[in-house]
Computed example of a mutant assay.
Amino acid sequence: MKILLLEDDVILHESLKIYLEMEGFEISSAFNAHDVYNITFENSFDVYIFDVNLVGENGFEILKSLRESGDNTPTIYTTALVDISSMSIGFSLGADDYIKKPFDPEELVLRIKSRYIKNDYLLYKNIHYNPLTKEIYQDKHLVVLSNILSHIFDLFISNINKIISNEILLAQLDNPNQNALRVNISKLKTKLNLDIKNIRGVGYILEDI
Rank of each mutant, 00 (worst) to 15 (best):
S69I: 00
D51P: 10
K134S: 06
R182D: 11
N32Q: 13
V36C: 15
D83Y: 06
R115P: 00
I18W: 09
N43D: 14
L132I: 05
E106M: 05
N58S: 04
G94F: 13
S44I: 13
I3H: 04
L12N: 05
N72G: 00
F31V: 07
D97G: 08
N161R: 06
L16S: 14
I89K: 15
N175Y: 07
N58Q: 07
E61K: 00
N147A: 13
F25A: 08
L12M: 12
N126K: 11
Q178F: 12
L145R: 09
Y129G: 03
A80I: 09
L81Y: 13
A80W: 08
K100H: 12
P102M: 07
L122Q: 14
E23Y: 04
L132S: 03
L132G: 01
E106D: 11
S146N: 10
N130L: 08
I84E: 15
E7F: 06
G201F: 11
I62Y: 10
N193P: 04
L192G: 06
L63P: 00
D104N: 15
L6V: 13
T78M: 06
E106G: 01
L170A: 00
L170R: 04
I148G: 03
T78I: 12
G59S: 03
E7R: 09
I49T: 06
I112N: 04
L188S: 12
Y48P: 11
Y98S: 14
L12F: 14
T133H: 02
I62D: 15
L145D: 08
L169F: 08
D8V: 01
F41T: 14
G94H: 11
E106P: 06
Y137T: 02
F25Y: 08
H13L: 05
E61V: 00
E135W: 04
D96A: 15
N161C: 07
Y98I: 13
